[in-house]
Design a protein around this nucleic acid. Structure first.
Length: 83
DNA sequence: CGTATGACGTGCA
DNA sequence: GTGCACGCCATAC
């Protein structure tokens, strides 16, 4: 695991309930403001269910994707009352 | 080791 | 408001 990916996972893991973060924000906090593209990639390959990657959305406010299917992601977000 | 890919973002027509 | 092209970075092949 790269340091960057580890940091990203850690940040996503620390996202409070009822709170969402954009890929860009995560990238910035990870120290690579221009690596938002890589952030999504890392989350995509990440299979750790401990990481609430469903709370990471696009800056446009749209749903990005999900390694388990975006439908599941939307479902979870609705369940958390975000949508 | 070089190329291709992707859960992105911004700019411009 | 919509659509297309370019840039950017970490993985996968």
């Amino acid at each position: 695991m790269s340091r960057f990916s580890q940091k990203v996972l850690g940040i996503v893991l620390k996202i409070p309930l009822r709170r969402t973060m954009t890929y860009k924000e995560v990238a910035v906090l990870a120290g690579r403001p221009k690596a938002y593209r890589a952030v999504g990639n890392i989350l995509n390959k990440n299979k750790d269910s401990k990481v609430p990657c469903h709370r990471v959305i696009r800056s446009d406010g749209g749903i990005g994707g999900y390694n388990r299917g975006k439908d599941a992601k939307v479902r979870i977000l609705k369940k958390e009352g975000i949508w």
